[in-house]
C-alpha cells in the first residue's frame, strides 16, 4: 500500500461533513456578507463612482469580493480544521494512523479548498443578481479560483499547525491578510492611487492575485496576467514547502 486512499477519503469526508453540519455558518453567512457589500459599495456608493477601466464600479468589485471571501474562508476552514483536533487532542488518531504527511495535507487542504471554491462560485452567482457580469476567460477564472483556494488553504493549514491558541489562530487572518486584501485593490484599481503609494502597493502580494483574477473577468488588470500567475504559483510553492517541512520535523505536532 503506497497510498492510503481510504484514509484521505475518511478525513476529506469528515471535514466536508463538518461544513454541512454548520451550513449556516459555512455558506449563508458569507453570502449575506457579500450581498451587503454589493448594497453598500455597488449600489449606494458605486452609483456615484465612475467606471474603472471601462467596467461599471459594481461589476468591477466582483472579482475582488470573491477573492476576499476566498482568502478568509480558505484560511479559516483549513486552519480551524487542523487546529481543532490539536486543541481537543483527537489529533492523536491522525498521528497514529498509517497516513503520510502528504496524504494528511491532501485531505485537509483538499476539503478546505473545495469548500472555498464552491463558496466562491456561490458568491459569483449571488453577484449576478446585483450587477451585469461578464467573464472573458471562464477556464482561466476557474483555474485561478481553484489554485487560489488551494494556496490559501495551505496557508491556513500552516497557521493552524503553528497556532498555539485561538488568539493566534485569528491573528494572521485579521491583522495581516484582511488589511493586505483591502489594500490590495479589492475595491479599486491601484492605478487610482498616487504614484508613491502605487509603488508601495506593488510590494503587496495580494495585488497580484486580485489583479490576475480580475483579468480573467474583464481582460485587464493592474499587472500583467503572466506576473499574476507566476506570483500565485510562487506563493503556492512556498506554502507547500513550509507544510512539508513542518511534517518532516513534526513541528508543533509531535513532541
Amino acid at each position: 500500500m503506497n497510498f492510503n486512499g481510504h484514509g484521505v477519503w475518511a478525513i476529506y469526508r469528515f471535514e466536508m461533513a463538518r461544513a454541512l453540519r454548520t451550513l449556516w455558518q459555512s455558506v449563508v453567512t458569507p453570502v449575506i456578507t457579500t450581498a451587503l457589500y454589493f448594497v453598500v459599495f455597488g449600489s449606494a456608493i458605486g452609483g456615484r463612482m465612475q467606471a474603472v477601466d471601462g467596467v461599471a464600479y459594481g461589476a468591477f468589485i466582483v472579482p475582488g469580493l470573491i477573492m476576499l471571501s476566498l482568502f478568509t474562508q480558505s484560511i479559516f476552514n483549513a486552519s480551524f480544521g487542523i487546529y481543532f483536533p490539536k486543541f481537543t487532542g483527537t489529533i492523536y488518531e491522525i498521528l497514529s494512523a498509517p497516513v503520510s504527511s502528504l496524504e494528511v495535507v491532501l485531505a485537509y487542504v483538499g476539503a478546505a479548498a473545495t469548500k472555498s471554491a464552491v463558496l466562491g462560485l456561490i458568491i459569483l452567482a449571488t453577484a449576478a443578481f446585483f450587477v451585469p457580469l461578464q467573464v472573458l476567460h471562464p477556464v482561466m477564472m476557474l483555474a485561478m479560483l481553484v489554485l487560489i483556494s488551494v494556496t490559501f488553504s495551505l496557508f491556513g493549514f500552516i497557521i493552524g499547525i503553528w497556532a498555539g491558541s485561538f488568539e493566534q489562530l485569528n491573528f494572521i487572518p485579521m491583522l495581516i491578510v484582511t488589511p493586505l486584501t483591502f489594500l490590495g485593490g479589492s475595491f479599486y484599481s491601484i492605478d487610482m492611487l498616487p504614484e508613491g503609494w502605487r509603488t508601495v502597493a506593488l510590494f503587496n502580494p495580494v495585488v497580484y492575485l486580485i489583479s490576475g483574477f480580475r483579468w480573467t473577468f474583464y481582460g485587464a488588470g493592474d499587472v500583467a496576467i503572466g506576473i499574476s500567475v507566476a506570483a500565485t504559483l510562487g506563493f503556492f510553492a512556498l506554502c507547500l514547502a513550509v507544510v512539508m517541512w513542518m511534517f518532516k520535523t513534526g513541528y508543533r505536532l509531535k513532541a
Binding site: M1, H6, G7, A10, R13, A97, V99
Partner: peptide, 30 residues
Amino acid sequence: TKIGLVPQELTTDAFETILATVTFSRGLFG
C-alpha cells in the same frame, strides 16, 4: 496498520455520532 491505540485521555469529536466516528477510524487506517 497493525496497531490500535486507546489513549488515556477521553479525546473525542464531540459533534460526531458514534457510528460516524468509528467508521471514520476504520477508513483512516486504510
